[in-house]
Design a protein around this nucleic acid. Structure first.
Length: 510
RNA sequence: GGGGGUAUAGCUCAGUCGGUAGAGCAUCGGACUUUUAAUCCGCUGGUCCUAGGUUCGAAUCCUAGUGCCCCCA
């Protein structure tokens, strides 16, 4: 919509076609330049809006008269109401809002006249005494006021704010200026990640935060198509990581015992309300633990998170109540498929022909090379996944689709693996790790065969990972938790784009 | 990949049957020392997403394309 303006400005042209509102503000900026420094950086604050609101919440006007302090605040002017020689300003800073009381006769000569030319959106700073107006609004009564940074572009309308989703995502800075809800989502996101770090490192758990490579010579650790890039000096194809798993387990071989990483993964797949090409995962590995320990820890973490972020253990998501206070159900893949497909007999669950028939009925794409395990998961995805609303651990995934997981002691066709589903979405994936190097090598070979047969999501053979396992990896359990989807749940956000500061968008200019 | 929705002033949105492009807020000019979406008076502001087509005439109808949103695969 404003493409012409943007191209004109980036090209450094005279903005002849720039809209009048911007042209007027640019004229004011030119006047400021003539008067001296238009972008001063000398003003210093000694408090914030939020701190003032908190400190003086219970003080009336009389009590405030006894406060013999000068408060310096700075931020964006969000509203400006001028009444002759008096004006009120709503100042927004990093942690809240505070009203400024601007009186001509309390300010140095000429300041009030200049102030009258300033615009909503400008960054200003001022200082003065704290007071409460006749209507009871806590205010800083200014004895000093400066324009710190001129805003050339008008803000969205004050009452409706910015609702256009495209502009909210493309110009997140505008969204953050005008939409309190948006700011709140990203504060909570930060709170969630802080909580997780503290939880993982708390006494008794003592996981060590580590950083492993984002660029891999061999992509591994997940069934996903990678982004490819190129290292010039080495003349080498590199892949943005789809998962940190194989590196983190090398650290377990190295004896670090308990490690975690919170960082981005990249998957070259479709984009939707639940998928962004880059997304954030918590991934952790725990020596001398198994997948049951992981499920217990996950429950405890999510319960604590809900309580910390929302203040209660029941999470309200898109009109549904999700109880994080109760133990989560645990249910095998087989059981879950049977529950949602009552026509199926037990024997059918591992019958390739029956499963293929079900897929055909539902026009689910299958490959001739797929075994019962893969087909069973296709049926699970189609008939079960989106019905798993209350938190539930789905366990015992087929070995065929779990090339890095330890086989179950009683049934080698399934693994000691689980996925946590909440609100019909996969939130976490964890398992007892496969630490038998010979079994792992065999699984890699099967993956390579699948890749050769055309499965672009199949894994590569990672020689060094096998070499690491051959040194001996302790019995270990490991898990990945999708942070973005977790933030969606805890902030009641319908789209992953609402919890990413800068979600992926097509480039603006063609 | 398929389907549906949407695109009009800086923002939020109207726009009838195809007949000169509208409102609120913001801006601009004026009044105002207690406002809270301040109020009052006055004036402005448009590539109706893009390109074609139909028509005497298109924001409106048709075709194609593009961005965004949603659903499905």
């Amino acid at each position: 919509m404003s493409q012409d303006q943007n191209t004109a400005e980036t090209a450094g042209q005279t903005p002849e076609d720039e809209n009048r509102l911007i042209a007027e503000r640019r004229g004011k900026l030119n006047s400021l330049r003539e008067l001296g420094e238009a972008y001063p950086n000398g003003f210093r604050v000694n408090t914030t809006a939020g701190a003032l609101q908190k400190r003086f919440a219970d003080d009336d006007a009389e009590a405030l008269e006894g406060v013999d302090e000068s408060f310096a605040v700075a931020g964006r002017m969000m509203a400006k109401r001028v009444m002759g020689k008096l004006a009120f300003v709503r100042l927004q800073d990093r942690d809240g809002d505070i009203q400024l009381m601007v009186q001509r006769d309390q300010l140095p000569e000429g300041v009030f006249a200049a102030f009258k030319t300033w615009d909503v959106g400008d960054i200003i700073g001022g200082s003065g005494a704290i007071t409460r107006t006749n209507k009871g609004e806590l205010s800083v009564r200014l004895s000093e006021l400066h324009l710190l940074s001129k805003s050339l572009r008008p803000l969205p309308e004050k009452w409706h704010g910015l609702t256009d989703t495209e502009q909210r995502y493309r110009q997140r800075y505008v969204d953050l200026i005008v939409n309190d809800d948006s700011r709140e989502v990203f504060r909570k996101r930060s709170q969630i990640i802080t909580f997780i770090r503290q939880f993982m490192e708390a006494p008794g758990r003592e996981f060590l935060e580590v950083e492993t490579p984002m660029m891999h010579p061999i992509p591994g650790g997940a069934a996903a198509r990678p982004f490819v890039t190129h290292h010039n000096a080495l003349d080498l194809e590199m892949y943005l990581r789809v998962a940190p798993e194989l590196y983190l387990k090398r650290l377990i071989v190295g004896g670090l015992g308990r490690v975690y990483e919170i960082n981005r993964n990249f998957r070259n797949e479709g984009i939707s309300t639940r998928h962004n090409p880059e997304f954030t995962m918590l991934e952790f590995y725990w020596a001398f633990a198994n997948y049951n320990d992981l499920m217990d820890l996950t429950e405890e973490m999510l319960r604590g998170l809900a309580l910390t972020v929302t203040g209660e253990t029941v999470v309200h998501y898109q009109g549904v109540d999700l109880d994080f206070g109760q133990p989560f159900a645990r249910l095998s893949v087989e059981q879950a498929v049977r529950d949602h497909n009552p026509d199926l007999a037990d024997a059918d669950l591992w019958n390739v022909d029956v499963l293929r028939g079900i897929c055909a009925e539902r026009s689910i794409h299958t490959e001739q090379s797929w075994g019962a395990g893969r087909l069973l998961m296709e049926v699970f995805d189609a008939t079960v996944e989106d019905k798993l609303v209350a938190p539930v651990f789905i366990t015992q995934f087929p070995t065929e689709v779990s090339p890095l997981s330890r086989r179950n002691d009683d049934n080698p066709e399934v693994t000691d693996r689980f996925e946590l589903y909440i609100a019909g979405r996969e939130i976490a994936n964890g398992f007892s790790e496969l630490n038998d190097p010979e079994d792992q090598a065999e699984r890699f070979r099967n993956q390579v065969s699948a890749r050769d047969a055309g499965d672009q999501e199949a894994m590569y053979f990672d020689d060094d990972y096998i070499r690491a396992l051959e040194y001996g990896m302790p019995p270990t359990a490991g898990e990945g938790i999708g942070i973005d989807r977790l933030v969606m749940l805890l902030t009641d956000s319908a789209s992953i784009r609402d919890v990413l500061l800068f979600p992926y968008m097509r480039p603006e200019h063609s």
